[in-house]
Design a binder for these strands. Structure first.
Length: 474
RNA sequence: CGGGAAAUAGCACAACUUGGUAGUGCACUUGGUUUGGGACCAAGGGGUUGCAGGUUCAAAUCCUGUUUUCCCGACCA
């Protein structure tokens, strides 16, 4: 029986999304607009994302720090593009007492300013460089329209801020971290993102250029899923971050920043989940296996304990559902919560010398002889699920990736089924804005290594500079 | 921030039009029987109707404001 609380994905995608968030107890609304209470099930996913990324960052030499939540106004204003880019979304702090603050403070929308201010006094020589810092924190951006995880006003993220003695090294870092995100999406989240360069219009305010990972949701809307920015000397010159190089000359340092957020939890839902609720790839699932004993027979319980112990001792996160619910209830609950694999053990199984494995992603039930190597079998099955989920998401993305050779084709595609639209672009802002007039289509990224389709801009017909992926964004 | 809809127990809703002691289902508690796809019987607990004002003898119901949510635009991770 279907969970009546969840609207069908094909009937109302937006409603389905919030229904899954609520039904799987990932987050709950609060009385502050756009600020959600992240519940244990949701936070567990974030903790796992943190653990995996943090380990990777540290392997690459990064260390964690924590900068202040509040930023003084004059500091915020030093880099003009950053101010302009974030001005409408920044929240300013007023104190409850009668005394006015001598200087206004804002709540960080991002921390380039605090890191740059810190670097300005701590970077003196090329010997101090590079500094590879990262922080896990919350930021605040006063968005107009909000959705749980996808666009909340307060959200959790990591922001890496690195500073280097040479342009080459900083650019290498920018690429390297983009590759980390790509790896994370493909290998861990099973989300086939595409990587490319943001146009000037879409790049981070204050960046020389922005690399981005773009993912396509089940409904064909795209989601920016991790960005890496090369700043060159823009911030270092605005904040006076100078160091003495090997030639004993003063030089502005080269910076990068890169981040990914709790938005990815929303991405996981919108790429993989279904009408029964959450579906999680095994590598990001906080709980990978649930064992459901059916009935109170001693042998059933003993076998459940034995399997749970063996799995738990071998790095598989499993648990036994010992609650007093009926099996059907337990099945449904495991499904709505997205537990990748379910093991069902009952007397009927024991009589036939078998146990039942049920995949969350396909609902397939597999009966296996009780004497197989269960640990190996589960390990392999989890890997298969992970792989299949990626393949399924890739297939869906490819089905929703289109090519357009002129504006008519663009319009036809977007009005039939939104998705990634590959089309040539001349590089002008005018043409980008004209695309936006069609259902709000935006450039997602410039494909750096692909040649234009026709060589002519899809809007103006002039010579095309780039092949661009366009789409509707969250 | 513009245009529309909504808010009543943990959840889904009824009562509102025509003002008169706030109800149903699921969930929850206790006891028992059950257990292979959201069990059954019995007994119980839970709400100053989002918040703040106003009208009235009397407000969930009428009026004003406000907050939050959803949908459609503009802005964005």
């Amino acid at each position: 029986m279907k969970n009546k609380a969840i609207t069908s994905r094909d009937v109302d995608f937006a409603k389905w999304y919030t229904d899954v968030v609520k039904a799987a107890h990932l987050a709950s609304y609060t009385n502050v607009k756009g600020c959600i209470a992240i519940e244990p099930n949701g936070y567990a996913i974030w903790e796992k994302m943190q653990a995996i990324l943090d380990k990777k960052f540290k392997e690459l030499g990064h260390v964690n720090v924590q900068m202040p939540l509040l930023i003084p106004e004059n500091l915020m204003k030093k880099e003009s593009e950053l101010v302009e880019g974030f001005a409408p979304e920044v929240a300013w702090v007023t104190m409850g007492g009668s005394k006015e603050l001598e200087e206004r403070l804002c709540i960080r929308p991002t921390s380039e300013t605090m890191f740059s201010d810190y670097y300005a006094t701590h970077v003196k020589s090329y010997k101090d460089l590079p500094l590879l810092y990262n922080q896990w924190c919350n930021v605040l951006r006063w968005e107009k329209e909000t959705r749980p995880f996808l666009r909340s006003r307060e959200f959790l993220w990591q922001e890496g801020h690195t500073i280097h003695a040479t342009k080459e090294e900083a650019e290498e870092e920018t690429r390297r971290m983009m590759d980390v995100y790509k790896w994370f999406h493909h290998e861990i989240l099973a989300i086939p993102s595409i990587t490319g360069l943001k146009t000037d219009k879409e790049k981070f305010s204050g960046a020389e250029y922005t690399l981005t990972n773009e993912a396509l949701m089940y409904n064909g809307v795209s989601l920016q899923a991790g960005t890496s920015h090369y700043f060159g000397q823009k911030f270092s010159s605005a904040y006076g971050i100078k160091f003495t190089n090997k030639e004993n000359e003063e030089e502005y340092a080269y910076q990068t920043s890169w981040g990914t957020t709790t938005r990815m939890i929303g991405g996981l839902i919108m790429v993989h989940s279904d009408d029964k609720g959450l579906v999680l790839p095994p590598k990001i699932a906080p709980k990978q296996v649930v064992i459901i004993p059916i009935g109170n027979d001693e042998r059933v319980l003993e076998l459940s304990e034995k399997i749970n112990k063996e799995l738990s001792e071998n790095n598989i996160i499993s648990y036994i559902d010992k609650t007093d619910k009926t099996p059907g209830f337990k099945f449904a609950e495991a499904e709505v919560n997205g537990i990748p694999l379910r093991i069902e053990i009952g007397l009927r199984n024991l009589e036939n010398n078998e146990i039942t494995f049920t995949r969350r992603d396909t609902s397939e039930k597999i009966n296996q002889n009780i004497n197989i190597n269960i640990l190996e079998y589960v390990k392999n099955l989890l890997e298969t699920i992970q792989k299949d989920m990626y393949e399924r998401a890739l297939k869906r993305r490819n089905e929703l990736t289109f090519e357009a050779r002129n504006l008519e084709e663009v319009k036809k595609i977007i009005n039939t089924q939104p998705g990634f639209i590959k089309a040539d672009w001349c590089g002008s802002l005018e043409c980008e804005l004209k695309m936006k007039e069609i259902n709000g289509i935006k450039s997602r990224c410039i494909l750096e290594h692909e040649k234009p389709l026709t060589g002519k801009c899809v809007v103006c017909g002039e010579n095309a500079k780039h092949l661009v992926v366009w789409g509707i964004q969250y």
